[in-house]
């Protein structure tokens, strides 16, 4: 590590056992977590300074609660990226979930449980298709999920003829509108609950350890007896379900199903995961970082809105932050793995 300008040779990439992170890896992880949360803190301060009364916890909770769907979708994206893949069908799945749930609810509170169950199952089914294409047909994740996303888009555009469809039940909007104890948005509670569930699976089960191993080095994982295909398929199923839940949250917030409201989420989930220190190579990062990544993006958008700059500037700002974070996380992860060309 003494010659930083020279590429470290790729000797023995198998030597770093992914299941038990080396000290260097653990250090890299903490440092990149520090960077993500540092950035989030910086943005909270900026957010507070841009307006009078900006530090009011109620205002900050409201801002975060309004964008909880991003946080929910990012959980799935992060799991897929940890498996060494990428899910570009998240936006279309969210739109699909929005339409499916609204159609099944049809304006009646009694249909909500059925709508939620069917929508989550639909998201999981899309995940199975993605997973099979990636794990069994060996199609590059980027292309497989891009193609599936495009097909989904075609399906719901043909189904709805491009018009809003279905009718959101009044009781469903409680997720977006209600406040627990008068201040805590329900959406944040749902988000944190989903996060805890997936975090438990990822960190406290053998399946989760296997997923990390598969993402870090699929060949080594396969040779040591891990059913890598199942890990990969499972990751996409989690992503599909998270996206379905996120899509329903978006519907609850906006009060109507839409064919394109979630289009931008595909890329913002990738951005949030990357800002949160999840590496593209797979097996590096966790779920804590993306949480900060979401906060960074949400606060950034709000700050720009408050400043009254054109909304197009948000795209530019997000792009710049993404590039900066990639350069930072690359520096932090250097040496954490033998392979240099991801």
């Amino acid at each position: 590590m003494s010659a930083p300008t020279v590429t470290p040779p790729a000797e023995n990439p198998e030597a770093t056992t992914p299941a038990a992170p080396t000290r260097l890896q653990a250090l890299g992880r903490h440092r990149s977590l520090g960077v993500s949360y540092g950035l989030a803190l910086l943005f909270v301060i900026a957010l507070g300074l841009t307006t009078k009364n900006g530090f009011s916890p109620e205002r900050i909770l409201n801002i975060v609660g309004q964008d909880a769907q991003l946080g929910m979708a990012v959980i799935g994206q992060a799991v897929v990226m940890l498996s060494g893949g990428l899910d570009l069908s998240i936006g279309p799945v969210m739109n699909l979930a929005s339409i499916v749930s609204a159609v099944i609810m049809d304006g009646s509170n009694g249909n909500i449980p059925l709508a939620v169950a069917v929508t989550i199952a639909a998201g999981g089914a899309v995940g199975v298709v993605n997973g099979l294409l990636v794990a069994k047909l060996r199609i590059a994740p980027l292309l497989a999920t891009l193609a599936v996303g495009t097909i989904l888009q075609g399906i719901y555009y043909v189904w709805t003829e491009g018009q809003p469809k279905g009718n959101v039940a009044p009781g469903f909007r409680a997720i977006a509108d209600d406040r627990i104890l008068g201040f805590l948005p329900v959406s944040i509670v749902v988000w944190v609950a989903l996060w805890s569930l997936v975090a438990f699976v990822l960190y406290r089960t053998t399946w989760g350890k296997g997923l990390y191993a598969t993402g870090a080095n699929p060949r080594a994982a396969w040779l040591s007896g891990i059913a890598t295909s199942r890990k990969v398929i499972g990751a996409y199923v989690i992503a599909g379900m998270c996206a379905a839940i996120a899509g329903m949250q978006l519907t609850a917030y906006s009060g109507a199903a839409s064919v394109n409201a979630a289009d931008s989420y595909t890329l913002t989930t990738v951005a949030a995961a990357v800002i949160g220190g999840v590496a593209f190579a797979g097996g590096i990062g966790g779920l804590a970082g993306p949480f900060a990544g979401v906060l960074v993006l949400v606060f950034l958008d709000t700050i720009l809105e408050t400043l009254g700059v054109p909304s197009a500037t948000q795209y530019i700002a997000q792009g710049l932050i993404l590039i900066i974070m990639m350069l930072v996380s690359r520096r932090l992860n250097r040496g954490a793995r033998g392979r240099d060309d991801a």
Binding site: L142, L267, V270, A271, V274, A312, Q318, G319, M326
Partner: peptide
């Protein structure tokens, strides 16, 4: 992928 994703956003803006 990330690099061109980022420039995609910047150029779109």
């Amino acid at each position: 992928l990330v690099m061109t994703l980022a420039t995609m956003g910047i150029v779109k803006g």
